[in-house]
C-alpha cells in the first residue's frame, strides 16, 4: 500500500513537471548548492514475461516477440511446477517486477495467458487463440526495438466494468514507461486492442506516414478472457466468461461426433443384416395362370392356346 501511495505522489509530481517549460540555467550558481537530480522516469513499470514448461515453438516465438517489443520486460526461466501459481508472485518480487505475463501451457497445445498486477491484484486469465508471430513473412512492417507504442482501444472497452478493468491492466502492462532509459525517442508503432465476438484481438502496426498509413508488424493473437480474479494469481473471482468453453470440451465433442459417425455406420450394417431375407422372394404360384399373350404374338404351340374368340 505504501508503495502505491508513493507511486501516486511521484505521479503527481510528474504531472507538475511534465509540460516541461524551457529550462534556463541560472547565470550564477553557488558551488555549495547540491545539484538537483532530474527525475523524469517516474512510472516504473516492469513486466515479468515467462512461461511454464511444455510450450510449442510457435507460442515460444510469440513470447519472445512480446519481450522484444516491451523494453520494460524481464525474462525468467521456464516454470516447472504447474500447480502452485502463487509462487509466481514471489518470483516477480525477486525480479523487482510489479506486472507479470505468464504463459501457462496445457497438454502441449493449449496456451493460457495470465496478466497480473503482482501487488494487490487483479489478475486475468486468457485463452490464447490464433497466434501469429513477428517472424512470419506476410507481416511486412518493422519498428524500433525499444520505441514506445501508442495503445489503441476499442470503444467497447468502456461498455462493461470487466472490459474497463482489462483495459486498465493492459495499458499498465503493455505501455512502455515514459523516459525509460532503454526506450527510443520516436513513436513508430501502435498496439491495437479490439473487442470482437467477446474476445480481444491484438494487432501491432507500424506507422509509415503521419497521414495514417500503416503496415502490420506482428505478432497477432486473440485473447479469450476466462476469469478475472481479485488477487494476483488467485483470490476471489470477480467475473467469469459465460461463453467460454474449454478446449478439452471442444475436442471431446468433436471426437464424440466422429465416433458417432463410425458407430452409426456399424449399427446400420448390423440392422441391414437382420432385415436381409435369407431366401429368395417367391411369388404366388397362381399368378402364372393368368399370364396371357395376344394371339398375334403367339408362336408354334402357343397358337393353339391363345385364340381370339369370334363374336
Amino acid at each position: 500500500m505504501g508503495k502505491r501511495k508513493r507511486e501516486r505522489a511521484e505521479a503527481k509530481k510528474a504531472e507538475e513537471v511534465n509540460p516541461l517549460p524551457p529550462v534556463v540555467p541560472p547565470l550564477v550558481r553557488d558551488s555549495e548548492e547540491p545539484v538537483k537530480k532530474k527525475r523524469k522516469w517516474t512510472n516504473k513499470q516492469r513486466v515479468l514475461v515467462f512461461a511454464s514448461r511444455g510450450m510449442s515453438f510457435r507460442n515460444r516465438h510469440l513470447m519472445e516477440d512480446l519481450r522484444t517489443l516491451m523494453p520494460h520486460s524481464k525474462s525468467e526461466s521456464k516454470k516447472e511446477n504447474k500447480d502452485n501459481l502463487r509462487v509466481i508472485n514471489e518470483i516477480a518480487d525477486m525480479k523487482n517486477c510489479n506486472k507479470c505475463i505468464y504463459f501457462e501451457n496445457r497438454k502441449k497445445k493449449d496456451l493460457y495467458m495470465w496478466v497480473a498486477n503482482v501487488k494487490g491484484g487483479p489478475s486475468i486469465k486468457f485463452h490464447v487463440l490464433n497466434a501469429h508471430t513477428m517472424k512470419e513473412l506476410k507481416m511486412t512492417g518493422n519498428c524500433l526495438k525499444a520505441s514506445r507504442p501508442l495503445l489503441s482501444f476499442d470503444t467497447a472497452f468502456d461498455s462493461h466494468p470487466h472490459w474497463a478493468l482489462m483495459k486498465e491492466l493492459l495499458v499498465q502492462t503493455f505501455s512502455t514507461p515514459n523516459q525509460l532509459p532503454k526506450s527510443q525517442p520516436f513513436h513508430d508503432h501502435v498496439f491495437c486492442f479490439s473487442i470482437l465476438d467477446n474476445k480481444i484481438w491484438f494487432r501491432n502496426y507500424e506507422v509509415l506516414d503521419t497521414d495514417g498509413k500503416l503496415s502490420e508488424i506482428g505478432p497477432r493473437f486473440v485473447l479469450n478472457p476466462i476469469k478475472v480474479f481479485d488477487g494476483s494469481f488467485g483470490g476471489e473471482t470477480l467475473w467469469d466468461n459465460p461463453q467460454f468453453v474449454t478446449p478439452n470440451t471442444i475436442r471431446s465433442l468433436k471426437k464424440k461426433q466422429e465416433s458417432f459417425k463410425y458407430t452409426d455406420k456399424v449399427r446400420q450394417k448390423e440392422e441391414f443384416k437382420k432385415r436381409k431375407p435369407k431366401e429368395p422372394f417367391r411369388g404366388d404360384p397362381t399368378n402364372d395362370i393368368f399370364q396371357t399373350k395376344a394371339p398375334e404374338e403367339a408362336v408354334n404351340e402357343e397358337k393353339q392356346i391363345f385364340i381370339r374368340k369370334k363374336v
Partner: peptide, 21 residues
C-alpha cells in the same frame, strides 16, 4: 470490479500511458 479498478488505477498523465479509446 469497479472498486478493484479504482484501487489499482494509476492516475498518470497521458504521456506516461499513450492510450486511446
Amino acid at each position: 470490479l469497479k472498486s478493484k479498478l479504482e484501487q489499482f488505477r494509476l492516475e498518470l498523465p497521458w504521456i506516461e500511458r499513450l492510450d486511446f479509446t
